[in-house]
């Protein structure tokens, strides 16, 4: 039976009063203006997408360390809609490479009119088709991924970059809110951990082609309600891709003191 408690609950008005009363106040530390990058910032700035790897395999414990950081990623409602598949078997990596290359060949010859002989009938018809798809799926049909797909189809570019380890990030489609965001954050933890351990990584969006292969899905354990969201290749980079690079700045709307400023 529910009993109304006689004592009144203590209302907490000001959280800072609480920590003070408890004698457990935390200190505010301000990193001074103009301070050098700290270790975490350095890792974020030096991370590049690595697409050429040495043959040496990455020790298993380092992959476990990276995935451990993924496990601690924030997620909507703490739903953690991820599952990892680690592939370190060169025959399987070659198999999924071959499958995705095949899909790129089909896709390229179905849509990429720009790679077809000038003035040909095929180019003319494909252009009309591509323009329609472009309207229906503008994110996928951006000129950059389309030229990437053709480069893969023509053998100028690889899908998994012949990396010694490939991590598939599987997404539970029932995740709260917008689960692809959680996968992105989880993968970011993994990638930055890798960078801090001296490893190179690359996100592989083209890995999504694997969802179209029932055979590979069975073999890799990709079943409902999971799907492959992204993949991350891991290995030791070739060369020293360490110089801090320039990138464009982006508009920042900044509201303070009753004013709006636009910063970059």
């Amino acid at each position: 039976m529910f009993v109304e408690p006689s004592a009144r609950a203590i209302r907490v008005e000001d959280p800072e009063e609480v920590e003070k009363e408890a004698g457990r106040s935390s200190k505010i530390t301000v990193v001074p203006e103009g301070a050098e990058w700290n270790a975490v910032e350095q890792v974020m700035l030096q991370r590049r997408s690595i697409r050429k790897y040495k043959k040496a395999q990455v020790p298993a414990h380092l992959i476990r360390r990276m995935l451990e950081m993924g496990r601690y990623a924030p997620s909507q409602g703490n739903c953690q809609p991820w599952k990892f598949v680690v592939i370190r078997d060169s025959a399987i990596i070659q198999g999924i490479e071959d499958f995705c290359v095949g899909e790129c060949k089909k896709t390229s010859s179905a849509i990429d009119y720009a790679s077809m002989p000038a003035g040909s009938f095929k180019r003319f018809v494909t252009r009309i088709k591509a323009k329609l798809f472009n309207r229906l799926q503008p994110n996928m049909m951006h000129p950059v991924p389309v030229s990437g797909i053709t480069a893969i189809a023509e053998g100028r570019f690889a899908v998994f970059h012949h990396a010694p380890t490939v991590i598939l990030l599987l997404m539970d489609k029932r995740g709260i809110g917008v689960p692809p965001i959680d996968i992105g954050i989880c993968g970011t933890n993994i990638v930055l951990a890798a960078q801090s351990l001296g490893l190179g990584t690359c996100w592989i969006g083209f890995s999504k082609f694997l969802n179209q292969s029932p055979e590979w899905c069975v073999k890799l354990g990709v079943e409902e309600p999971y799907e492959i969201s992204e993949a991350i290749t891991v290995g030791y980079p070739v060369g020293n891709p360490t110089h801090l690079i320039a990138r464009e700045t982006h508009e920042i709307g900044w509201f303070e003191d009753g004013k709006k400023q636009v910063l970059y």
């Binding site: 203006e33 301070a35 503008p138 464009e248």
Partner: peptide, 17 residues
């Protein structure tokens, strides 16, 4: 058209604030 870049400023190396 559709993919025109928006709200971009100049290229810059990482800036220290």
């Amino acid at each position: 058209g559709y993919y025109r870049q928006l709200g971009r400023g100049e290229f810059s190396k990482p800036r220290i604030f």
